[in-house]
Amino acid sequence: MAPKVSIIILNYNGRKHTIDCLRSLEKVGYKNTEIILYDNGSSEDISEEIKRKFKKVRVIRRTTNIGFSGGNTDAYRYSHGKYVLLLNNDTTVTKDFLTALVNRMEKDPQIGIVQPKIVFQRTKKLQSGCVFFTSTGFLYYLGFGKDPGNKTYNIPMQVHSANGACMLIRREVIEKIGLFDKDFFLYFEETDFCHRALLAGYTVWYEPKATIYHIGSVDNSRYKYSLLVYYSFRNRLVSYIKNLGLASLFVVLPVHTLLCIGLIFAYLFSGKPESSLAVCKALMYNIQNIRHTLQKRAYVQKHLRRLADGEFLLRVTRFPRIEYYLRLFTGLERYID
């Protein structure tokens, strides 16, 4: 019998997208699933409508928004499957996507996390394929904004991080290392989680035989851009301090911090003072909360780490040209991989 998959979907004032997502899941060929819709403090209660239209969907409703990290972590408590699929509500899926993801997992018990090819719904360009680590601390998004049919992006690969819009996780991974860091609220939570899985000896894969479509940034559009900048920069630093080995940390942290300081001035001189201030606040947060972060680091390094950085990090690292880092903030679709 095919292993059971628990599908967790968060909703935050996204009725139309959520219904479209659930309708696409009804057409999926893989049938041994349970669907948990976690309403994360929406002002509009769609519980009864969902129960009426989708009989097999279990709805969990909260009165307050506890963020992407907190919502998924709490929703996980209600799941029972061997595998857990985290799926954004502004996605639509293809018939065989889940079969392809589960097949990849079943081939190798060392695989802890796998993501599909994620295509922008509107432009039909690739949003997320392979995400790699770089020595600067900024991630390398292979294929972003490119043609998803290009053979370069249709090869299964080991990666540093899966995309939180859709990721299939082996349940035992969550039981061993936990799910998302609740302090993150928004951004970088899936990369932090994948990094911990790598430390624990699992691998993270990109499976291009599985495809989903993603509108993108629907929930995030409800937040000010400067707030998104703040969480992105803040959480990235926290994650590296927690997870990197000392030798890697001494290389990456100074370089990344200097680049962040440079971006403070770049944002300021380009007429984006709120973003400049957001990066400043992100750096200050890490200074003010270093003791708390080091406590997390002590736990990760003592209880979760099974591999040294040298045993896995280079395998999921890329060294892009300098142009990449300029394009990262001005338009990655123009960068040639």
Rank of each mutant, 00 (worst) to 15 (best):
K242T: 13
E274Y: 05
G137W: 01
T99A: 02
T136V: 12
I36C: 00
I287L: 15
F132E: 03
G201R: 03
C166L: 05
L314I: 07
E48Y: 07
S161Y: 11
I322Y: 13
R334M: 08
G201Y: 02
P156Y: 07
S276G: 13
H17E: 11
A210N: 10
R236Q: 06
V252P: 01
H303F: 14
L304P: 05
Y38A: 04
I215P: 03
V251N: 06
R196G: 06
G262Y: 02
L37K: 04
K182Y: 04
E49F: 06
Q121N: 11
Y324P: 01
S248M: 10
E48S: 14
R77K: 14
Q115S: 09
E48G: 09
L142P: 04
I336C: 08
L126F: 10
C21A: 12
R334G: 11
S221D: 11
K302L: 15
I118A: 03
K281C: 10
L142A: 10
K182P: 04
L249I: 09
I7E: 03
T152W: 13
V102K: 01
F132R: 02
G201N: 08
G137T: 02
Y325V: 09
N220H: 14
I290C: 13
T99S: 10
T91A: 05
I322S: 14
H292D: 10
Y140G: 04
R315C: 04
Y206E: 03
Y225I: 07
I19T: 07
E323Q: 11
L263K: 10
E106S: 08
D74Y: 07
Y325C: 06
L25E: 05
H195E: 10
Y83Q: 00
N11M: 07
R291Y: 14
I60A: 04
Q295F: 13
K125D: 09
F269C: 03
N163P: 02
E189C: 00
T257R: 13
I36P: 01
T330H: 13
F319G: 00
N103G: 08
G137K: 00
C194K: 00
F184T: 06
Y206H: 05
N154T: 08
P148N: 06
R315H: 12
I8A: 06
S221Q: 07
K242M: 15
Y231H: 05
P109K: 08
Y76T: 09
V102Y: 03
S239I: 09
S248A: 07
G310S: 12
C166I: 03
K242D: 12
I7G: 11
A197W: 00
K209V: 09
L277I: 11
T123L: 06
W205F: 14
E172W: 02
D219V: 12
H303V: 14
F180S: 00
S24R: 03
S135Q: 06
K82G: 02
L85G: 03
K125A: 13
T33F: 00
F319C: 02
L326Y: 15
L86E: 03
K51V: 04
